[in-house]
Amino acid sequence: MPIVSAFFGIIITMYWREHGRPHFHAKYGEHGATFDIETLDILTGNLPRRARLMVLEWAFEHREELMQNWRLCQEYSIPNPITPLE
């Protein structure tokens, strides 16, 4: 599970050859959620409100990079790191 970014205790990962809609995973402590890259909707799981808002802000800024990484993961290539939220 390649980590593509980490900030404020939130870990963002993408997995190789996952199916379905383009998405990424966010983990914060014992909480985790899967986010649709195109709509930024939560597909599964949940995060505390503050962590969820930070993930959404970060993903909005980096949506194109997330899509590039999704394509890389579909080819079993290592995704590129993405600048964390500051």
Rank of each mutant, 00 (worst) to 15 (best):
residue 8 F to V: 04
residue 1 M to V: 05
residue 6 A to N: 08
residue 63 R to E: 15
residue 5 S to C: 05
residue 34 T to A: 15
residue 28 Y to M: 05
residue 13 T to F: 01
residue 70 W to Y: 08
residue 24 F to E: 11
residue 21 R to S: 13
residue 20 G to K: 08
residue 36 D to G: 05
residue 47 L to W: 10
residue 31 H to A: 14
residue 66 L to H: 03
residue 68 Q to F: 14
residue 29 G to T: 09
residue 52 R to T: 04
residue 72 L to V: 04
residue 3 I to Q: 15
residue 57 E to G: 09
residue 20 G to H: 03
residue 35 F to I: 05
residue 19 H to W: 10
residue 13 T to V: 10
residue 55 V to Q: 12
residue 38 E to W: 07
residue 68 Q to S: 14
residue 24 F to M: 03
residue 13 T to E: 14
residue 72 L to S: 11
residue 13 T to D: 14
residue 16 W to C: 07
residue 24 F to A: 02
residue 3 I to S: 15
residue 51 A to Y: 14
residue 70 W to C: 11
residue 11 I to K: 15
residue 28 Y to W: 14
residue 75 E to W: 03
residue 49 R to S: 14
residue 80 N to F: 08
residue 66 L to M: 09
residue 54 M to P: 06
residue 2 P to S: 08
residue 14 M to G: 02
residue 21 R to T: 15
residue 24 F to K: 06
residue 21 R to I: 15
residue 6 A to Y: 07
residue 36 D to W: 02
residue 25 H to L: 06
residue 59 A to C: 01
residue 81 P to T: 12
residue 43 L to R: 06
residue 14 M to V: 07
residue 29 G to E: 13
residue 42 I to G: 00
residue 38 E to P: 06
residue 42 I to R: 05
residue 83 T to A: 13
residue 75 E to A: 10
residue 61 E to Q: 14
residue 61 E to D: 15
residue 33 A to L: 00
residue 44 T to F: 08
residue 27 K to I: 13
residue 10 I to E: 04
residue 8 F to P: 00
residue 26 A to W: 02
residue 46 N to P: 05
residue 35 F to V: 04
residue 2 P to T: 00
residue 43 L to D: 07
residue 35 F to N: 04
residue 4 V to F: 10
residue 6 A to R: 09
residue 21 R to N: 11
residue 81 P to K: 08
residue 74 Q to V: 04
residue 80 N to A: 07
residue 46 N to Y: 05
residue 45 G to D: 06
residue 29 G to D: 13
residue 85 L to V: 03
residue 29 G to I: 02
residue 86 E to I: 04
residue 78 I to Y: 04
residue 72 L to F: 07
residue 80 N to Y: 12
residue 16 W to E: 12
residue 53 L to Q: 15
residue 66 L to G: 10
residue 26 A to R: 02
residue 73 C to P: 03
residue 1 M to G: 12
residue 47 L to Y: 06
residue 32 G to I: 01
residue 80 N to I: 03
residue 79 P to L: 01
residue 23 H to Y: 01
residue 50 R to L: 14
